[in-house]
Design a binder for these strands. Sequence first.
DNA 1: CATTACTACCTTGCTACACAAGGTACTATG
DNA 2: CATAGTACCTTGTGTAGCAAGGTAGTAATG
Lengths: 121, 121
Amino acid sequence: MSMETSSNNLDNVKVQMRKGLLEYCILLTIAREKKAYASDILTELKKDDLLVVEGTLYPLLSRLKSDLLLDYEWEESSAGPPRKYYHLTPKGKLNLQALNETWEGLATSINSLVKKYEKNH
Amino acid sequence: MSMETSSNNLDNVKVQMRKGLLEYCILLTIAREKKAYASDILTELKKDDLLVVEGTLYPLLSRLKSDLLLDYEWEESSAGPPRKYYHLTPKGKLNLQALNETWEGLATSINSLVKKYEKNH
DNA sequence: CATTACTACCTTGCTACACAAGGTACTATG
DNA sequence: CATAGTACCTTGTGTAGCAAGGTAGTAATG
């Protein structure tokens, strides 16, 4: 019972930690592949243990589109329904560069805290 | 106007990125100092550009207390009202170790994405 | 052509969280 | 006793991820 609580608590912390980083990860993935559709992104992020679910991804892609960071075009598939292939807009590329810096700053700050902590242990 | 939107958007992303990491940072800070009260924590996190505000910190401390990760005792101050000094419980220490691994895994995953991206640029 | 399976896209309801703003209360100083 | 400073806490708001459920096109089977 208390272990269950503890476990759920940790899972939740992981979810919270990923918040805000997902947008960055998705832009990174699309930028690398030049263009990608939802399943591509899910597969790529899964490779790096950054699993995202559909219910998270689709609204995020829509938001990035309406923020003009992404654009898309439809493409026929050899098997199955057509796909929305997303690519970065010029604004999206600028934004990604800014996010690179934001991530680096954040990682530096936290690693600094970790080092200070490790000194006393 | 479009710059304003862009700027607000980025600020928001920063806020979102920090979400979930704050709990980890606060546990790290308290663990390092053995014990700390709210102002200590605010000061320490500010040093590493991880500014937290009171309205964020107090509810978080209360939650960590009710999750049994933290405990506190009152201490008189030489000037001003008494202070709540927080320290990690055994459960809190275990949890911190788990968070260390979570953070490391997250940082590794994202840095892996960044490297793949940089290869194509 | 009806059924089934697969793929792809999208929406709704829920919960958790950070934050801004505002509030209470204790201590010291003049 | 009034003012300033410190410390703790609460309420309301907006944003985000997620689980679950829904729509629709394609293709193979009988």
